[in-house]
């Protein structure tokens, strides 16, 4: 894995090993904020920022971190970046900060971040690690945007807050409510694993 090409890192994280759809990580914080695209975008970028920088930091320190307190160090570094994101949102995007509320703090427990730190940043030099983290986060953002696209269009008839309900259909309240998020992500995972199974069958 050490000399993996940049393009391979990107492709792996966005598609074939997408953390949400293939590894089923980071679901916790992803669903609650997906009823509008604006919230999803900000949340996703926040996560990408934290994953990228924490992977960079942890990889740079990988030779001086005492092994037995490794997890503690990871948590500390991640929490520090999350607090920074939280302060940033409060200062520059107050409306979104108010809507995301405690879900920003919950980025700390997003398994993707710690997963990348454990699985990749520990053995790899800082730059590839940062790239890997960043794109794992962007893969997550992509999924969030996909889910919220469906939920916002059908639930509110809007996209990023702009009205796209040209035919004036009755909006589906269920889309804004929690169950819809489960159904949509279930469907997406179904599609991705069927696709992977098909590919594996072909390879044989």
């Amino acid at each position: 894995m050490v000399n993996e090409k940049t393009s391979a890192i990107i492709k792996r994280n966005l598609l074939s090993e997408n953390q949400v759809l293939r590894a089923i990580l980071g679901i916790c914080s992803s669903l609650a904020v997906t009823n509008t695209m604006r919230n999803s975008l900000v949340m996703g970028l926040g996560v990408a920022f934290v994953t990228g920088l924490s992977s960079l930091t942890l990889s740079a320190m990988r030779n001086i971190i005492p092994h037995r307190v490794r997890m503690l160090v990871q948590t500390l570094v991640i929490a520090a970046y999350v607090i920074f994101v939280d302060l940033f949102l409060q200062a520059f995007l107050p409306d979104i900060s108010k809507q995301l509320g405690p879900y920003v703090g919950l980025i700390i427990t997003n398994c993707i971040i710690m997963g990348r730190a454990e699985a990749y940043a520990q053995q790899n030099p800082p730059l590839p690690a940062a790239l890997d983290g960043l794109f794992a986060g962007l893969g997550y953002t992509m999924v969030l945007l996909g889910i919220s696209f469906i939920r916002e269009v059908l639930g509110f008839g809007t996209l990023f807050g702009m009205n796209v309900n040209f035919i004036r259909f009755e909006t589906w309240t269920i889309m804004i409510m929690p169950p819809a998020a489960f159904f949509i992500i279930g469907g997406m995972i179904w599609f991705m694993s069927a696709r992977a199974a098909g590919k594996a069958a072909k390879a044989k």
Binding site: G186, I189, A194
Partner: peptide, 17 residues
Amino acid sequence: PGVKGPALSFIITGIMA
């Protein structure tokens, strides 16, 4: 095919929700 595993869990959870 493909629905077994996490996809199925999500759909069940959606119905429970």
